[in-house]
Simulated assay, not measured.
Amino acid sequence: MTEPQPKPTKEELSARAARVRLLVFDVDGVLTDGGLYYGDGGELMKRFDVKDGHALVMARLMGLPAALLTARTSTIVEVRGRELGLAAILQGKKEKTPALHDLLTQFSIPPESCAYMGDDLNDLGPMSHVGLSSCPADAVPEVRQEAHFVAQNRGGHGAARELVELCLKASGRWEEAVGLMRRSEKKSGRVG
């Protein structure tokens, strides 16, 4: 077994997060709770966290695009990704590292300007090729060991939002994002 990578200091983590120009997320166990619900006709449901989704919209509005990279294929994921206005939805990618490289090339983003969040062993490849690797609190031990940033929340329960907030705060865009949300609420007349 290899020695665990030392975790970056708070300053190093902030510097990595400030450089991020593209967020890439695995789906099952990261944006969902990892549960797969099947009926007679196949997959019926996945559970997504609305706070994660809201954070992805905020990131997009602040000029920080996000993408999905998953080994599975699901209409549900396509629908959710489009609903959130994600930059790319890559499904059925059993070999995630080459798919990540293609995505980075497509968007002209160097690997050090990408953050990736995964939760299982098949995410170790992409995690080792980005500037900011991250995972939910309930990721498998090998992934938690390799991640630069381990969220306090579980997958499908706010972990993705933590990564978005980390990147927006480190790049000085968080307050602007909050202000944008406040102005949006006032314009719509919504109270709560």
Rank of each mutant, 00 (worst) to 15 (best):
V164F: 06
Q106V: 01
M58D: 06
R144E: 03
G81E: 05
F48M: 12
V178Y: 02
S171M: 09
R60F: 02
G41F: 08
L64W: 00
T97M: 04
L56F: 06
L56N: 02
P8I: 02
G41L: 13
A159L: 05
M127F: 06
A17Q: 07
T97N: 04
A67R: 00
S184F: 08
L31T: 12
P4Q: 09
A17Y: 05
L84M: 02
G34E: 07
T97I: 05
A139E: 04
A147T: 05
L86W: 04
A67E: 01
E112T: 05
A159H: 02
S134Y: 02
G81V: 04
K93G: 00
A59R: 04
R16V: 05
D52V: 12
G35M: 11
G85R: 04
A59E: 05
G155V: 10
L100N: 02
L103Y: 08
G39W: 10
Q145D: 06
R82F: 03
E83N: 07
P136L: 00
G34A: 12
R182Y: 07
Q145C: 04
R16L: 13
R190H: 12
R183V: 09
G63Y: 00
D120W: 03
E112F: 07
E165W: 11
M181F: 01
N122D: 12
Q152S: 14
D40A: 11
D123M: 07
G192Y: 14
S184L: 14
L86A: 12
M1V: 13
R154K: 15
C167I: 08
P126A: 09
K169T: 14
G189M: 11
V30P: 00
V79K: 13
K94Y: 12
A137F: 08
S188N: 11
G172R: 09
K7F: 03
A151T: 10
V130E: 01
V57H: 07
T2V: 13
K169D: 15
L22C: 10
Q145V: 05
T32P: 04
L86K: 06
G39P: 02
L100P: 01
P141E: 15
A71V: 00
L100F: 01
P98E: 03
V191G: 09
I76D: 00
L166N: 03
D120G: 06
G189D: 11
Q91L: 14
R21E: 14
K51T: 08
G118E: 04
G118A: 07
A67L: 04
E95A: 12
A137W: 05
A99S: 13
T75I: 10
K7R: 15
A170M: 11
M58A: 15
K46T: 01
G156M: 06
K10N: 11
P6G: 09
A17K: 05
Q106T: 15
L163E: 00
R183Y: 08
D52F: 07
E43Y: 02
I109M: 06
K96H: 03
T75A: 14
L90K: 10
D102K: 14
R82A: 14
A87E: 14
S108L: 13
R154A: 12
A151E: 13
S133M: 03
I109F: 02
M127K: 07
Q91N: 03
E175Y: 01
R72D: 00
T70Q: 07
S74C: 09
E12T: 08
E12N: 07
I89A: 04
K46I: 03
S188Q: 14
K46V: 03
K51N: 09
P141R: 09
E176T: 11
R144P: 03
K169P: 11
P4H: 06
